[in-house]
């Protein structure tokens, strides 16, 4: 399992691996926001937590269609399915690798982009915490969507259509934590709910992803 994780990380870092693309997309989206809503700093400060969450979510979504499709095309997925590794483990590792290469950089970049959007000082901590807790759920849910659409030729758009509704609860609670943090309100309730969604997704969804992958492989 560790070998698979290291291979995926190595692949992401080598040429053509797409590492950093999500990060660049996050930056671009954030920069575009003031152009579309205007430069007033009070307005930007108010929408910053939501915009950053949405940007992170979209950047995450962007990289999902490569998550399993590359391994599908070159036959690695067939071979992994016959390996001693349970498929549930494989998809979990894939989701973890996706989180490390996409989710974690987004979390770390978010405070920097928060500066661009005039995020209030007390908001930074909770933005970071909410993304740290929420992005693993985005990766795991996204892996499920990627497993659903892995055999399809033009799966990219369908993948977004399938995954977006599943992202609704995570986005609501995550952005709520960030918003309340920025406004100096108590964040405990949405924070616990967000953590609950992440924990439950990580614990349960790999079984669904593996089941779906088995169907697609046969």
């Amino acid at each position: 399992m560790i070998a698979l994780l290291f291979r995926d990380l190595k692949l992401a870092l080598r040429a053509g691996g797409g590492f950093g693309l999500g990060l660049a997309f996050f930056l671009i989206v954030t920069v575009m926001v003031p152009f579309s809503v205007g430069p007033q700093s009070e307005l930007l400060a108010r929408i910053a937590p939501g915009v950053l969450w949405l940007g992170a979510l979209l950047a995450c979504l962007l990289s999902l269609d490569r998550l399993l499709a590359l391994d599908w095309e070159d036959g690695s997925l067939d071979l992994l399915a016959t390996a001693p590794l349970p498929l549930e483990g494989t998809v979990t590792i894939k989701a973890l690798a996706h989180w490390i290469t996409t989710g974690l950089p987004l979390v770390l970049a978010a405070p920097v982009l928060g500066v661009l959007l005039n995020l209030p000082v007390q908001g930074f901590l909770w933005l970071l915490v909410s993304l740290l807790l929420g992005t693993p759920a985005l990766s795991v849910i996204g892996t499920f969507g990627a497993a659903l659409t892995v055999g399809l030729k033009r799966g990219g758009l369908l993948l977004s259509l399938l995954v977006m509704p599943l992202y609704v609860p995570t986005l609501i609670f995550g952005a709520e934590v960030a918003r309340r943090g920025a406004e100096g309100l108590a964040v405990q309730t949405p924070l616990l709910l967000l953590a609950g969604i992440s924990a439950a997704s990580i614990a349960l969804l790999p079984f669904a992803s593996a089941a779906v992958l088995r169907v697609n492989l046969r």
Binding site: P165, V168, P169, I172, F173
Partner: peptide, 11 residues
């Protein structure tokens, strides 16, 4: 997730 969304939206 639909049920979760229902509660999330309520909240």
């Amino acid at each position: 997730f639909a049920v979760l969304s229902r509660y999330a939206v309520n909240f």
